[in-house]
Amino acid sequence: MSITGQFDFSVVTTGAYRSWLVSGLGLSLQLTAISLALSLPAAATVALMRLSGIRALRGLGTVYVEAVRNVPLLVHMMFWYFAMPELLPQSARNWLYEHDAESVCAVIALTLYTCAYMAEDIRSGVRAVPVTQLEAARALGFGFLSSMRRVILPQALRIVVPPLVSQTLNLWKNTSIATVIGTAELMYQAQRVETDSFRGVETFGVATLAYLSVSLMITAFATWFHHRFPARSP
């Protein structure tokens, strides 16, 4: 294959192709937003489980995190889309296939995957606040919950937000893998446009730019947060 002749970006930025790409971008953003909204509370829960004093909870949390993180996202997606529905009762399976199964399974896979990583970051963040901080708060007379609220959590938040933003960036990029199960997000649409128009450079160029733009916005947020709320070491 050779890249000869002019590049004509207007082919991809107008008409049907443009609407395909835009709808793809829209779905990618939706997948990211929904998975993020679900992952954060789930991750907090798993982190608390792993920090708890109850051995069974700690074990459960660890098993979840290790099982999810050591398997590629692609395999997760394949499992949830091709294998999991077989385990559902017929009525549930019908419901699923009538309601955009591809997107639903993509969100399930993305949420479980992202949650595992975020849980680890939250756990590290809480553990990174020196125990002496809690001791100092208690020595002043604050109760456990008060100490947590006034002293520990504000410090933990500063430590935890940057890695969580980093995971959000990963989540955004990971939505591209949903193309494998037929989810019509940006990567899928880009392939579709390329197959139809043979305009590889223009199509993938525009799609890459779209990914980069959002990535840069996320990174810019992280930099701003780091400057505005630096995690000071004692």
Binding site: M1, I3, L169, K173, N174, T175, S176, I177, T179, M187, Q191, E194, G200, V201, F204, A207, T208, Y211, L212, S215, L216, T219
Partner: peptide
């Protein structure tokens, strides 16, 4: 490179 999905990098390599 870090702002681009791995899959996209693979496509770029594959096509170009």
């Amino acid at each position: 490179v870090r702002g681009t999905p791995a899959l996209m990098v693979i496509f770029w390599a594959y096509f170009f």
